[in-house]
Simulated scan of single mutants.
Amino acid sequence: MTERPMPSEDGILAFHKRCEDFYPADAVDADIAQQRAWYDALCAAFDAAPPAGMVKADGLVAGRIPVRRYRPAAPTTQTRLFYIHGGGFVVGSLESHDAICAELAEAAGAELVSIDYRLSPEHVWPAAFDDCWAVLVELLLENRPVVVIGDSAGGNLAAGIVLKARDEGLKGIAGQALIYPGLGGDLVSGSYVDMAEAPGLSTVDVAYYRDIYGAPEEAVHAYPLRAEILAGLPPAFITGAYFDPLRDDARAYAARLALSGVPVDFREEKQMIHAWLRARFMSEGAKAGFAALCAAVRRMANL
């Protein structure tokens, strides 16, 4: 039997243990309501107070899409950040990534908008994508630059709407930050094999989330790695986790962007697992990775 790949950093191992106390490794076998209840409890366990002076306001875009706006006490730029949460297109909400969004807004000195897009299986492709696209268009219509950010499934949605913006000639995206994104790799080679049983996310889990999302194979904006042309996209910051079946999606997309002439800042967190953003107060590697993400977003927002 092949030995399960595991990092050696104590902090990330403690994080993984704490996660599994809330969200079992076989969570995808449970019904959707149970998965969401477990995920909500997990997120609450890693919650943190917002930075001093941070103002939050909930509202709707297009009369139906819930968003949350974050304004730091002392903004330094007119650029807005648009954050799209992860969760396999199945779990997650405005609450699940609330602290992460607040800290990113503070670090960048920029207002941030997060989205509560429709989830599968109640709303399959292209519902989540359409919601994210509608919010992006609304932000761009306000004639202020936008940095699009997403983690995991949110990284997929972020990359997809940035591709569509280029395809439709929309201007104003100052950058994209993709955090351990799932971008449409083949599931049968590279990290999908080497890290098939990695802690926090397995290749079987990835296949489950893709299946429940229901995007057809020809939907290039759902599988950004399959896009034939990547030239003309905005600058990118891409960070992957070594112990993650999605690792090679991040590597491959960063390489293809660079070969297409797109400015790319790529990091791979060598001791990290999927979802390491939540470990930023438990793990030195996650703390360093989050600091690099914040610095990259700040650079893109303040150009």
Rank of each mutant, 00 (worst) to 15 (best):
residue 192 Y to L: 08
residue 168 E to L: 14
residue 116 D to F: 01
residue 256 R to C: 10
residue 205 D to R: 11
residue 36 R to E: 15
residue 271 Q to F: 06
residue 55 V to Q: 12
residue 56 K to I: 11
residue 277 L to T: 11
residue 198 A to F: 10
residue 229 I to Q: 15
residue 94 L to R: 09
residue 157 L to C: 12
residue 251 R to A: 15
residue 126 P to N: 15
residue 134 A to S: 11
residue 129 F to Q: 11
residue 168 E to I: 15
residue 93 S to P: 04
residue 201 L to C: 12
residue 176 Q to H: 06
residue 35 Q to P: 04
residue 224 P to F: 06
residue 34 Q to T: 13
residue 279 A to P: 05
residue 298 R to G: 00
residue 44 A to P: 09
residue 98 D to N: 08
residue 26 D to V: 04
residue 1 M to G: 15
residue 148 V to I: 12
residue 1 M to Y: 07
residue 5 P to Y: 07
residue 226 R to K: 05
residue 17 K to G: 10
residue 87 G to M: 03
residue 71 R to Y: 00
residue 28 V to D: 13
residue 168 E to N: 08
residue 107 A to R: 00
residue 236 A to Y: 02
residue 212 I to N: 05
residue 75 P to S: 00
residue 104 L to Q: 03
residue 30 A to D: 14
residue 162 V to T: 14
residue 183 L to Y: 08
residue 147 V to I: 08
residue 293 L to I: 03
residue 298 R to H: 01
residue 67 V to I: 14
residue 290 F to L: 08
residue 112 L to W: 00
residue 42 L to A: 13
residue 86 G to P: 03
residue 236 A to I: 07
residue 162 V to H: 06
residue 243 F to L: 12
residue 261 G to Q: 12
residue 134 A to R: 10
residue 157 L to S: 07
residue 80 R to F: 00
residue 160 G to D: 04
residue 101 C to F: 00
residue 232 G to T: 06
residue 24 P to K: 12
residue 86 G to Q: 02
residue 33 A to M: 05
residue 286 A to Y: 02
residue 227 A to Y: 02
residue 106 E to W: 00
residue 212 I to V: 15
residue 179 I to F: 02
residue 94 L to C: 09
residue 18 R to H: 13
residue 42 L to I: 04
residue 247 R to F: 08
residue 88 G to L: 03
residue 235 P to W: 04
residue 242 Y to S: 15
residue 143 N to Y: 02
